[in-house]
Nucleic acid binder design. Structure first.
Length: 436
DNA sequence: TCTGGGGTCCTAGGACCC
DNA sequence: TCTGGGGTCCTAGGACCC
């Protein structure tokens, strides 16, 4: 790679990570200014765990992923605003944010719902911070979402710079980490390095590697042995060598999962079957949306992991489909068959799901002259079904056996409206609200 | 009482074949 | 009866990410 760069250090190419601050909480605030500057948390499915927190909520000591029942007191004492998660809204806001980012920096990789990497090629090193700051202001102004920007010569360093930008709350929200800035690396906990999770952190700390700088200086062979080849790439990136490329074109999904934990528990096959049918049918929609077909189907179910006092059972059944398909009735039938196979009476099931793998391209056959082939007819029926569900809202039409699906067995008590995607749930604007 | 959901990749080990 | 090595493919489990 670019030895030439040494000759022109001021035009070195850099990556930046744009990361939305407390994304879900920020989305909730955009449409409800009354909760600005106040503690806000967003909950996972079934209102079980905290999946997003405003800074004020973080300061109260509410942890990421913490079960809600453990922070009930804090919520009450400090009047924390609680919202069930609203992914329709977050997806739409995400699209708006990154469309804006891309209008400034066209080479962009959407990395997750709230993060994107960009390539700052063409921007002079001296101008990078200013350009990023300009983009940041535009995003805030046009979408209402605050973002932080970290700049570095590799994705891993850009991630660390972003971490530093967030750490410095009074700062400008943009941080540039020079490749040789070891003092900064020494200030970053090794567990905060992108790619180092809980287990690896434990291994590293036990070996005296506590900071990002220690990791940068670690022995390559030792890393390869005790972590793996990916962990080693992280080390290379800390040294300024690019090991993870910017991927502008998202690779097609290799698997699709639809699963849920149930608010209570499921004790009869008759209660599980509609849930499985619903999972299979939602996953099939996803298959068709990306024009793939599943070659392998897996159904899994398990009892409550957190109840050691109850009988435990977890199992999964995998079946290979003779012909890869994305046809809902076929997939539902197979899912029920696989589920029946691993079903056992006498357990209280807490979670189940359907997974499709061995995905392969499947182009729907459009407007064939004759209806001779069943799969043509099936393709068109599926297209119609997807179209109606898309326009009318999810689940207007679904496979007969899906019935109510998971409607009666999941919980959602703090929902906010789908402000941006449903006419009947639009925010009401009041002229005297004051913000323009 | 109440504990998320959806992904990726790597590695080791077994089955099977030549 | 005894004895081999190397390759591929698949799967399960474990690590990581948001």
């Amino acid at each position: 790679m670019g030895r030439r760069h040494l000759d022109h250090p001021r035009s070195v190419t850099m990556f930046a990570l744009v990361d939305c601050n407390n994304f879900y909480a920020s989305c909730e605030r955009v449409f409800d200014p009354s909760i600005e500057h106040r503690p806000v948390i967003v909950l996972s499915n079934n209102d079980g765990c905290v999946v997003a927190r405003s800074n004020e909520a973080k300061e109260l000591g509410i942890g990421m992923g913490q079960p809600v029942f453990q922070v009930r007191d804090l919520i009450r004492r400090h009047g924390v605003t609680v919202r069930s998660s609203n992914y329709t809204l977050y997806d739409d806001m995400s699209r708006r944010v990154f469309t804006t980012v891309q209008s400034f920096f066209p080479k962009m990789e959407s990395y997750s719902i709230d993060e994107a990497f960009i390539d700052l090629e063409g921007t002079h090193l001296d101008d990078m911070i200013d350009s990023a700051a300009t983009m940041r202001r535009a995003v805030l102004q046009w979408t209402g979402i605050p973002v932080s920007v970290g700049i570095g010569s590799t994705k891993t360093l850009a991630k660390i710079a972003n971490h530093m930008a967030k750490r410095d709350r009074a700062g400008p929200g943009v941080e540039l980490l020079e490749t040789g800035d070891d003092a900064s690396l020494a200030s970053v906990d090794v567990g905060d390095v992108w790619g180092i999770g809980r287990r690896w952190k434990r291994t590293l700390v036990a070996h005296g590697i506590r900071t990002a700088l220690d990791l940068k200086r670690a022995d390559d062979q030792w890393i390869l042995q005790r972590l793996n080849s990916i962990g080693h790439r992280t080390v290379l990136e800390l040294r300024g060598r690019r090991a993870f490329a910017l991927e502008e074109e998202p690779a097609p999904r290799r698997s699709i999962v639809r699963s849920r934990s149930f608010a209570g528990s499921i004790e009869t096959w008759d209660a599980l079957a509609p849930a499985l049918a619903s999972f299979a049918s939602r996953a099939a929609e996803k298959l068709r949306a990306q024009e793939t077909a599943a070659g392998v189907l897996t159904v899994f179910l398990n009892t409550n992991w957190f109840r050691p006092d109850e009988p435990r059972y977890a199992n999964q059944a995998t079946l290979k489909l003779l012909t890869p398909t994305n046809d809902t009735p076929t997939l539902v039938r197979h899912a029920l068959q696989a589920g029946r196979h691993i079903w056992r009476d006498g357990f209280r099931f807490k979670k189940a799901g359907v997974r499709f793998t061995a995905l392969q391209p499947h182009r729907p056959v459009q407007m064939h002259l004759f209806d001779a082939l069943d799969h043509d007819r099936s393709d068109r029926a599926m297209q119609t079904m997807d179209r109606i569900n898309r326009t009318m809202g999810a689940d207007m039409i679904r496979s007969g056996s899906a019935g109510l699906g998971t409607a009666g067995i999941t919980r959602r008590r703090h929902g906010s409206p789908r402000y941006t995607t449903r006419w009947d749930e639009l925010v009401e604007a009041h002229a005297n609200r004051g913000k323009s």
